[in-house]
Amino acid sequence: MSFVLECPHCGPREVTDFRFGGEVRPGDDGGRPDAAALTRTLYLRANVDGVQREWWQHRSGCGAWFRAERDTGTNRVLRTAAAEVAW
């Protein structure tokens, strides 16, 4: 596996510069989940074959976490955005 991600702060870098942080998931809305919902939240991931939103951290660079849209089938990164940027 090898591809390039564009860090919103540092620019394009090899994927080995980054730490993968998993799918972007909806946050805790404060409501108490039932057992099934909790299990889904904790242990199940969409694992899509296609474009998904992900967390990445520029571990060997500026250290910042940011979000990326990546096609899991082709590893093409469609766009990246700093955490504070709404999208």
Partner: peptide, 11 residues
């Protein structure tokens, strides 16, 4: 890194 990740989400 973990704390930073939460902060990136919560802001």
């Amino acid at each position: 890194e973990w704390l930073q990740w939460w902060q990136a989400d919560w802001r």
